[in-house]
């Protein structure tokens, strides 16, 4: 095992996949000469040249569309959005072109490509630079969505996403890039995590905190706090939201009978709304309490530090939600 950062894990995945397959190229703002706005692509220009590591103009709709066209032409583009906030400009190409082309062509034309970059809140970046974009992408059939929360998941899932034959949105955590973690050594062979497999990040028996992406760490903090209160929480990291590991969701529901969904995004039609619907459709009789959701406050992200703090989901709110589904008064109340 090597201990590397989330950023280095992504870099390794890109380098390995570019090494493996000449049709893979990286395009986006600042990805080449600047080494990436978050340094994810550091050294790749030097290694692969400007044919395969391409600085784009600031034109999200344009270069996202160019990526779709290149995929239609047989390449495997990795399109980096400096953040997914800016990708809202590109949604026409993501939804109308990337996600629908295979269907619209009666199966003639697959679109194997990755849209990647950070999503979610950072620190005091306010409304337009701090938002979770998962629901924009997961809503449309035809596209897949992956949200790694650890360095190992980042590496293994990015490699799988690049090899997948469909468009995959790959959402990273802006505040995770420096996070260190254990990742299998390069010498130990190809490390690929298949899409659609959730991961139990903490075993527990009293309540299930289901989550994805960066919130995995908030869930683990909450579980630690609950532990002090004698509550044994399970943390299920979905890792991939489409395909979705429904089996793993049902397994944790069967085990604990109580669910809190934790996500960075807004509640309305959010990821938790879908998970709650799926659970009540398929495991209603196993539930001992209504499913609760912990989300961002239903407001655009404010700038002021104190307001931002209460707008974002945190471990204390998760603890309170867990106590409510357990019908108990916890120490955090």
């Amino acid at each position: 095992m090597q201990t590397i950062t989330y950023r280095e894990a992504l870099n390794q995945a890109l380098a390995e996949e570019m090494e493996r397959d000449d049709t893979v190229f990286l395009m986006g703002e600042e990805v080449a000469e600047y080494d990436g706005a978050y340094k994810v692509s550091k050294g790749l220009l030097e290694k692969f040249g400007d044919r395969r590591v391409v600085d784009s103009p600031i034109a999200e709709l344009g270069f996202a569309g160019l990526g779709v066209g290149a995929a239609m032409g047989g390449l495997r583009p990795v399109i980096e959005f400096m953040t997914f906030n800016f990708s809202i400009l590109a949604l026409d190409q993501v939804i109308n072109s990337a996600a629908k082309t295979f269907y619209m062509t009666g199966g003639q034309l697959p679109v194997p490509m990755v849209f990647r970059g950070p999503t979610g809140a950072a620190l005091q970046l306010s409304a337009q630079h701090s938002q979770a974009c998962e629901t924009w992408y997961v809503h449309a059939p035809g596209i897949k969505l992956v949200t790694p929360g650890t360095p190992a998941d980042a590496k293994g899932l990015l490699k799988a996403a690049i090899r997948d034959n469909d468009p995959v949105a790959f959402m990273e955590g802006e505040l995770l890039y420096n996070l260190k973690g254990e990742v299998p050594d390069v010498e130990d062979g190809d490390f690929v995590i298949p899409l659609g497999k959730a991961d139990v990040k903490r075993e527990g028996s009293d309540v299930s905190i289901i989550t994805h992406g960066k919130m995995v760490h908030v869930a683990l903090q909450a579980a630690k706090k609950l532990e002090k209160d004698g509550i044994d929480a399970e943390v299920l990291d979905l890792r991939s939201l489409r395909p979705l590991d429904v089996e793993a969701i049902l397994a944790t529901v069967h085990k604990t009978n109580r669910v809190v969904y934790l996500e960075e995004g807004w509640p309305y039609a959010g990821i938790g709304a879908q998970i709650a619907a799926t659970i009540q459709e398929e495991a209603f009789d196993y539930l001992d309490a209504p499913i609760l959701r912990v989300t961002q406050a239903d407001v655009p992200m404010p700038y002021a530090k104190n307001l931002e703090q209460i707008a974002k989901p945190d471990a204390d709110r998760v603890v309170r939600a867990c106590n409510r589904v357990l019908y108990r008064n916890g120490s955090a109340d």
Binding site: F102, Y103, T105, G107, P110, P141, G142, L195, V246, E281
Partner: peptide, 21 residues
């Protein structure tokens, strides 16, 4: 239902309209 995805992954659910239940 055909041609929505060109690769149906080995794991996980891709469709949410209840067709497979």
């Amino acid at each position: 239902y055909t041609h929505v995805y060109s690769e149906v992954n080995e794991h996980g659910r891709l469709f949410f309209d209840g067709r497979d239940r």
